[in-house]
Design a binder for these strands. Structure first.
Lengths: 118, 118, 118, 118
DNA sequence: GTGGTCTAGACCACC
DNA sequence: GTGGTCTAGACCACA
């Protein structure tokens, strides 16, 4: 995993998204133990507080839970993971369709562009 | 036009995007005169500096040019407008497709979601 | 306002609750401007980051919103405030009734205790 | 009995409360022998030290006493049990009434809410 | 001047 | 060793 961050958005946000993606795509499996905050921080070359913040958000979302002294785990709740995957996709689709609509593209135009994409 | 701004991104960016859209979608026509910075500022309830900044960016892109004496105009260059429209669409498609790909959606999945959109 | 904190719970939580209460009880009125993070911090004798954290939570809840450069305001949404008041009361009642039920008190017992309270 | 713990408070506290409740509600009867620390620990899937700590507290309160040779027993002192039950109820009522008062609910409001509770 | 973010370093309770 | 909290101090973009 390449821990590279752009400077246009907060690091903790980018961290959040990357980890979210790793969970959704299955790189981190349900029940897996996550590296400790300190490990993570040194691996990503970032301050532990920054990791903490991303983790707190992941907990709030429900993808991750912490066990005080035994570290952090990925949720076992497969449904939750699917649900968040769907939600992220939905948001992405909505934003995209609105953008394209405002630019004046019809559904057919859009599908054509997508089929030409790579 | 609703001049509403969210606080998660700079106002001048949102302003820029809205005006860009009004040009591309034809609400502002090529050659039209734009309101003065002051007028604009009072209409959008925004600091004139903020308008100024958005305008500077629009000029840099080439959608707008200023005429020392007669204020700011929309470009006459129809090709330029089309080109920017295409570019915005392309960026939007690229970002969208990358997002969906990372989430694990295939081209067919995506097209299905788009057809179900509204 | 007495900014005193107990050490059994995080300061930012106590801060959050106190401010929440001040909004709900009407000490801060809808639309009011809140003190800046720095002012608040020096008034409560707490680190600005701690205030920031409490404020971020209040924003997430929707009681407060920030205007980037012009400071933070209490929401104008009276309904939202009422709703949160009701929700807090409901949580409080639920927890209380469960506690008392587990201790073996009936509804009548409970009402009697309440009527004897002070 | 469900041995489930939240991670927002120390486990030994939650353990303490649950056992206290089992004594007060009569699931453990006065004079009953408690499981050994080891048994308890394996049943609740918790570190024996944690059980130990909860037990120490129960002894301090006087709900439990240990008999060097024959393990730990529930107290025979029925008055003690009643007294603690009353004290817990009183604390619960006080906290609840203060909460509701701060939220702006009158005694009548509160009684109404309680009567509507399930 | 405002909020937002980040770092560095420290201390704590818990197990 | 683990997560959680707090402080102090710094820098940035924005208006």
């Amino acid at each position: 995993m390449a821990w590279e961050f752009k400077s246009d958005r907060p690091i903790y946000t980018q961290l959040l998204e990357k980890i979210q993606l790793m969970i959704i795509s299955g790189k981190y499996k349900p029940g897996d133990k996550l590296p400790s905050v300190r490990e993570f921080a040194s691996e990503a070359a970032v301050n532990p507080n920054t990791i903490q913040r991303a983790m707190a958000e992941l907990e709030r979302i429900g993808l991750v839970y912490s066990n005080r002294t035994s570290g952090r785990m990925i949720t076992d709740d497969l449904e939750k993971i699917k649900e968040i995957k769907k939600e992220l996709a939905k948001e992405s689709v909505n934003e995209f369709m609105q953008n394209m609509g405002r630019l004046g593209y019809s559904e057919d135009d859009i599908i054509e562009l997508i089929q030409k994409y790579k």
